[in-house]
Computed example of a mutant assay.
Amino acid sequence: MFRASGLRPLALDTGALCGGIGVLVALCLLSLAVGSRPLGLAEAWDGLRAHDDTVASLIVWRLRLPRTALAVVTGAALAVAGVVMQALTRNPLADPGILGVNAGASLAVVLSVWLGGITAVSGHLWFAFAGAALAAALVQLMARRSAEVGPTRLVLAGIALGASLNAITGTITMYDTSAFDSYRFWVVGALEGRDAALLAWVAPFLAAGLALALASGHTLNVLALGEEQATALGARLGRARALALLAITLLCGAATAAVGPISFVGLVVPHVLRLVLGADQRRLLTASLVAGPILLLTADIVGRVLIRPDEMEAGVVTAFIGGPVLLGMVLRRGEGRR
């Protein structure tokens, strides 16, 4: 089946995978060293091993290690969610935010500030996650208004709901300055100021979402063949879409609640990996566990040194990276249709 559709064998190139893991480990160590108070790589490593009251150890353990770990897990979550989203919609330009997840989380954060006066990042967590989950559920319900839930209807429902929620968010922030002030710092997507408690909170949701996504690789390969062939092969389309949507909700909802809506990770990583590895979703899901953290960690490190001593948020850096990639993809698809 996979040979006929142009898919490659499952096994990843071990050398390439080990190389990617090596790059990720190096970036993690660099992330521990780079910041407003720079440390040498050896000093950062010693501070990590010592875990004592020295300045280097306190900086590493209290500030940079939670930030680095959060970049790794959220980068993996967003990349994996992007692979699932593009396979589910059969659209290489699809981004997890297209389901309205980011819009639902953003509105919930604004409502928590506007109605509850909650301004701390930790206070936004449950609201952001609940808003993301509710938005994804509403998209699914809207798509099911037709007899058959196809990928096109799912995308259109997500775009329509996202536009509506963003309009409500914009209206509230326009007339409430406190809501706008809190929202504008959250919405850019940043890893700064996040602690180990936040990582512990999102970890169960991310673990569940990753498990669902990785287990769906074979089903996503079948869905890529088209609905008629998938049905002929015995795939249960409704169940497959529901599980994929649940995985996207858990991954994007938890990641967005923790660090804000970081864009383009779920778009760029699957696209690049597809060019290198082919269309087998199992290969893409496995590789995205490494490639996603590499991209987000790189963006975070670049943001720390680009305008030193200040910082540029990781979400801004990924937008600078993802924008040209998206433009190139659109132009390439346009040339292919001529």
Rank of each mutant, 00 (worst) to 15 (best):
R282T: 09
P270A: 03
L285P: 11
V259K: 03
L285I: 02
S263P: 10
H271R: 05
C252L: 12
A254D: 15
A291S: 14
A254P: 12
L277G: 04
A279G: 15
I262A: 03
S263A: 15
P270M: 07
D300M: 01
A254I: 09
L251D: 15
A279D: 15
V269S: 02
S263D: 15
L275H: 05
A287N: 12
L285S: 05
F264W: 04
S288P: 11
G292C: 03
P261G: 02
V265R: 00
G253H: 09
V268F: 01
A287H: 06
V276G: 00
S288Y: 10
V272S: 04
V272Y: 03
A291P: 11
P261W: 00
Q281P: 12
P270G: 05
V290T: 14
L277Q: 05
G260W: 07
V268I: 07
I294P: 12
A258E: 14
S263G: 13
R283C: 08
G260H: 10
A291C: 12
L295K: 04
R283V: 03
I301A: 08
L285Y: 03
I294A: 13
G260Y: 10
T256F: 01
A258V: 00
V276C: 09
V272M: 08
D300Q: 02
A258R: 06
I262L: 07
L296K: 05
D280Q: 03
S263N: 13
A257I: 03
V272T: 10
P293L: 08
A279M: 09
P261L: 01
L295M: 12
D300L: 00
A291F: 05
Q281T: 15
G253Y: 10
I262W: 07
L277Y: 02
V259C: 14
T256K: 05
L297C: 02
F264L: 11
G266Q: 13
L250M: 09
A299G: 14
H271N: 05
T298Q: 14
L275Y: 05
L289E: 14
I301T: 15
L285A: 06
V265M: 02
S288F: 06
L296P: 06
A257H: 04
A299V: 10
V272K: 00
D300H: 01
T286E: 13
V272P: 01
L297H: 08
I301W: 06
V259L: 04
P293C: 08
D280G: 01
R282K: 10
P261H: 03
L296A: 09
L251V: 09
I262V: 15
P261R: 01
P261N: 02
P270D: 14
V265A: 03
R283F: 01
D280R: 01
T256A: 04
R282N: 13
L295P: 03
A287Q: 13
V269R: 00
L275A: 14
G253L: 13
L275C: 08
A257D: 12
T256D: 11
T298D: 15
A279V: 11
A257L: 07
G266R: 05
L267M: 07
H271I: 01
H271M: 07
